[in-house]
Amino acid sequence: MKERVVVFGDAIIAIILTIIVLELPIQTATNGMVDMNSLFRAVGIYFISFCFVANLWFQTGYAFNKIEQVKNKDLVIYLLLLFFLSLVPSATRLLIEDTTKQTLLIYGVLTLIVTFVMRRLIVALTGQALTDDEQRNHRFHELNRQDIVAISFRLLLLVFGNFFVKPALVIYLILPILAFLQNIVDREEDNLVATLDEDQQADYFQDRDQLWGNSVRRYSTLLRDSMKQGNDQDPDRWKQVMSEWEGNIDQEINDRKKHLFELNDSDKHHAERDIARLEKQKQRLEMQKAMTERRLNQENTHKKK
Rank of each mutant, 00 (worst) to 15 (best):
V241Y: 09
Y46A: 07
K305L: 13
T30V: 10
L79S: 10
R218W: 01
D147M: 14
N300P: 01
W238F: 15
I15E: 08
K239P: 03
H269L: 12
F40Q: 05
I77E: 02
V7I: 10
S152Y: 12
T30G: 11
I15L: 11
L105I: 02
L85R: 02
Q182F: 06
D10C: 08
F40T: 05
S90R: 15
A63H: 03
D234S: 02
A290M: 14
L223V: 03
F52K: 01
E23Q: 14
L173V: 04
V70P: 06
I151K: 04
V5T: 03
H141C: 09
Q182K: 08
E3Y: 00
T60I: 15
L79F: 11
L85T: 15
T92G: 04
A194P: 04
H302W: 11
F40P: 00
L278H: 02
K304P: 03
L104S: 04
V114P: 08
L178G: 12
L75F: 10
Q283D: 09
R224L: 12
Q200K: 06
L39S: 07
A124K: 12
Q146G: 13
S86H: 06
I19S: 04
F160V: 06
S90H: 14
F261C: 07
F160R: 04
K239R: 13
D35R: 09
E286C: 08
L192E: 06
K101C: 04
D255M: 09
N248F: 01
L121R: 03
P176G: 09
V123Y: 10
D197L: 01
I77L: 13
L75T: 00
Y46S: 12
M227T: 06
T99C: 10
A91C: 06
E68T: 08
D236C: 05
V216D: 07
A14L: 00
E3C: 00
T221K: 15
L80R: 10
L121A: 14
L192Y: 15
Q251H: 09
V88W: 05
N231R: 13
V114M: 06
F47K: 05
Q182I: 01
N37M: 04
A276F: 03
Q135L: 15
Q128T: 11
R145D: 05
R4W: 09
S49D: 10
V149P: 02
K71V: 00
D267H: 10
M291I: 07
E142W: 09
S49E: 02
I151S: 02
K280Y: 01
F47L: 14
Q210W: 14
R237F: 03
E286A: 13
Q229N: 08
H270D: 13
F58Y: 13
E252W: 04
R41A: 10
I12T: 12
L155F: 10
W57R: 14
